[in-house]
Amino acid sequence: MHSDISHSIVRSFRNAFLYIQSQYRPIARALPGLIRATLALALLAAAQPARAEAESAAPTLTVYHISEGVEQASRALRFVANHLSGDPSARIVLVGHGPGVDFLLADAADRNGTQFAPGIRELIARGVEFEACNNTLLSRHIDRSALIPGVKVVPSGVVELSRLQAKGYAYLKP
């Protein structure tokens, strides 16, 4: 039964097309192109929600710029914890240079005496990356071994900030 209806619809469409073709040659020549264009637009429109869904599934990328010392680092660590609470799949990098490397030292503590290392190790375990500027380490005569294990050393903190932003990371300076 459905097959008969389908064939009937196809025959009706074909007959209408042939009639239009015989009566209106210029329109008939354009009709197949218009149908293809309409179909292409419909397919494109249907693909947009899938594209938007795929983009929303991608993790957000954020780089935190730490250059002012332990007070700023304390704020940044609170922001990162809140950031991960709201977006657990976020990819976060903290780049420290100048006084911003101080909180990355194994014996560093905030103004209340709370060590940074346990919190940083916990964030590293959650996928957060910490990077220290090698230029700063060299100019301040800080040995890499003084850093908290898991902290990466990059040649230049400011170059790393630029590189990450060029890769699509949002820039935040707490």
Rank of each mutant, 00 (worst) to 15 (best):
P88T: 09
S6N: 04
L123W: 01
N82H: 09
Q165M: 12
L84A: 04
S3W: 10
A170I: 12
G98P: 04
A58L: 15
M1G: 14
R78E: 14
A76I: 07
Q115S: 15
P26A: 13
L172I: 14
R163S: 14
A28Q: 11
D110L: 05
A166L: 13
A45E: 12
I124W: 06
A132F: 08
R140D: 02
K152Q: 12
Y24T: 09
L137F: 05
S145K: 09
H83I: 02
A166N: 11
A90V: 08
V95M: 05
T62Y: 04
P26E: 14
A42D: 02
Y64K: 04
L41Q: 09
R14H: 10
S8V: 00
F13W: 02
D107L: 03
L104C: 11
G157W: 04
E122I: 00
G113A: 13
I148G: 12
F13T: 08
K167W: 04
D87G: 05
R14Q: 08
N112V: 00
Q21E: 13
G113F: 13
A109G: 10
Y171G: 08
R25M: 05
P155F: 06
F130P: 05
I27V: 11
D4G: 02
I66Y: 04
V153C: 03
G168C: 11
F116Y: 12
F13V: 13
Y169A: 10
R91W: 01
N15F: 03
A117I: 10
A57F: 07
L43V: 14
V80N: 03
K167Y: 09
R144M: 01
L94A: 12
G69E: 06
G100A: 08
R78V: 15
R121H: 11
A54N: 15
Y24K: 14
M1A: 13
L161I: 14
K167G: 02
G113D: 13
G100Y: 03
G96W: 07
V63G: 08
D143A: 13
T114F: 07
R140H: 02
H141R: 08
H141L: 01
S74N: 05
S156I: 01
V80C: 02
Q23V: 12
Q72Y: 06
R78H: 10
L41H: 09
E122L: 07
S12N: 00
L105H: 05
I9Y: 01
S156C: 03
G127W: 01
S85F: 02
L31V: 15
E55I: 14
S85V: 05
L77W: 03
G150Q: 11
L172G: 02
I5C: 02
H7E: 14
P26D: 14
L84E: 00
E68D: 15
D107M: 05
A57H: 14
D110F: 06
N15S: 10
H7W: 04
G168S: 11
Q21M: 11
I20H: 10
E68Y: 11
A40H: 07
P149M: 08
E160V: 05
C133W: 01
S8R: 07
I35E: 01
D4F: 09
A108F: 07
V151D: 09
